[in-house]
Amino acid sequence: MSLLAALAALSAALSPDGDLYVAQNVFFAVIAVTMIFSALRVVTTSNVVHAALWLVVVLAGAAAQFILLGSEFVAVTQVLVYIGAVVVLFLFGVMLTRASLGDDESVGEEKRGMAAVVGVLLFSVMAIALIDSFEADRLVIDEPRSVSTVSDAIFSQYIVAFEAVSVLLLAALIGAIVVARKD
């Protein structure tokens, strides 16, 4: 079984004398555990404002992972857009729908089981596929990818996609106004 072999190799590499026992991986493990814990709190807490704050932790963790992966610009954007704008937007949404005042007791009991089954099923399929395909591929990150490379790519190779996204944002802006305005 290639799956078992892969797992064995992984655990060997992660042991204190394996080649994966490096500072980056320690950071990764700490951040990953924090993220998973926070994400679980986001979907289980009964207080909506708390959920939004736990979401901030997950998003910040993702930004940290981006830095680990050598993608500084994406990390910065993550902080600016997600933590700076999206979470604030969520808090406004919570405020305007008055759901923040009390606890949100309505976590559907009958749905939890179904949702958990679907989630675990999805995860097992994905995990098997990932371990099977990428067994022990290493990431070698010598230096971070610079902003100038990213911007060059955006404004040359992906200019059409970039324009499309800007039109999409405009449409979303107008759409949100049209949907939400009182009339």
């Binding site: 399929v125 994905m126 596929a129």
Partner: peptide
């Protein structure tokens, strides 16, 4: 809508599992 979503994700998982069995394992 959540029941639809549950069916959607479950079916996606089943389909992916089927591909996995056919092509990978």
């Amino acid at each position: 809508v959540q029941n639809y979503a549950a069916i959607l994700f479950a079916m996606a998982a089943v389909l992916a599992g089927a591909f996995l069995i056919i092509f990978a394992l």
